[in-house]
Amino acid sequence: MPGIFTISLDLELYWGVRDSRSFSDYEANLHGERDAIRGILDLFQAHDVHATWATIGFLFFKDIDELRKHLPRVLPDYRRHQLSSYRYIDEHTWGDDDVYHFAPDTIELIRSCAGQEIGTHTFSHYYCLEEGQTIESFRADLQAAMEVAEARGIPITSLVFPRNQGNPAYLPVLDELRIASYRGNENASFYKPRNKQGQSALVRALRLLDAYINLSGYNTYSLEECARKRPFNIPASRFLRPYSHSLASLDSLRLRRIKRAMRDAAIGNRLFHLWWHPHNFGADVKHNLAFLQNILAYYDQLNQRYGMQSCNMGEVAVVLERMHVG
């Protein structure tokens, strides 16, 4: 099997940042997100790139009234109440901002494009490592996410844990609900799953530095390693950080860091998994799409020279299942 280039995107709108950023502080990103999504899809189609869009279940609804009718029976009781999207539903003053909370039209656009998989990012942007929540409330949340997707003819087989809070104790729930794969974290200690309190300034600084300088290695993975057990862990290799005016002079380093890891995967018949949020691109769509174009053009070169293939997470899971059974 040749090397695999995997992309996953965490589709959240405001639900993914509402507990950490005010709407006014993040409005530029949210306002430009749909333009970014259209641009990303255009690039994916031009380069025949397949990707998984891990989508919050709330986004499938047209408005708050429809969402309220489909809430799970068991809700998480986070110790830090501001983490709960369910509390936000009751506390938010609903007006003309539905476009930043709901996106059935965007989901249909993504779904209509070849090679694009709709995965799940849980129903409510559920945090699996925060105090107060339980496996029962996680199961109810995830079931709700799968039901709303399946009601629209979209089977869910791939999951991305919000904030990368993968909880090993919850993996049997994925197997129970027939979710074939999830995106795990990189191996370095500063990437290990943490709750919000564990995100220290040092951890964030090391992750930022690692985007430009090789601190954690290439983070590419053998398919045999990924196929060891179900549900299959298709780990992250690199977060695609958005354009920053203050760090623009270092963008050549950021691109080189990604390209070297991609090449390692292509030559060694390994897997490279790139991920980001569409809203990351929203504040500076042009620069971010240009950077992505450079990455995808390099993928074209690796495809032609080494046979590297682009697969979404669902497609990777099919390959891993064959290896697992064999």
Rank of each mutant, 00 (worst) to 15 (best):
Q116W: 07
A145T: 06
I64N: 02
H70M: 00
G132L: 07
I107G: 12
D63A: 11
H50V: 00
I89T: 06
T52A: 08
F102L: 13
Q143W: 03
L109Q: 10
D97V: 06
I135R: 15
D96Y: 10
I107Q: 12
M146L: 11
Q133A: 15
D105R: 15
M146P: 01
D48F: 02
Q133C: 11
Y88V: 05
D98Q: 13
S84I: 02
H50C: 09
P104N: 11
L83Q: 00
A54C: 07
D90R: 14
A51Q: 01
I135L: 15
S124Y: 13
Y78S: 06
F60D: 00
D90K: 12
D65H: 04
F138G: 03
H92F: 09
L71G: 00
Y88T: 02
L59C: 12
A51E: 04
E91R: 13
I56P: 01
I107R: 10
E131M: 05
W53A: 00
M146Q: 14
H50S: 13
G57D: 01
L75Y: 00
A51C: 05
E108L: 11
I89L: 15
D105T: 14
L109N: 07
I118N: 01
S124R: 13
F61S: 07
E131V: 07
D77G: 02
V148M: 05
H50Q: 08
D97M: 10
L142A: 13
D77Y: 01
F61C: 11
W53M: 08
E117S: 08
I118A: 02
V99F: 03
Q133R: 13
L75C: 03
L71M: 14
E108Y: 07
P76F: 01
H47N: 09
E91N: 09
L83C: 00
H70V: 02
Y78I: 05
D90E: 15
A144I: 05
S84P: 03
D96P: 08
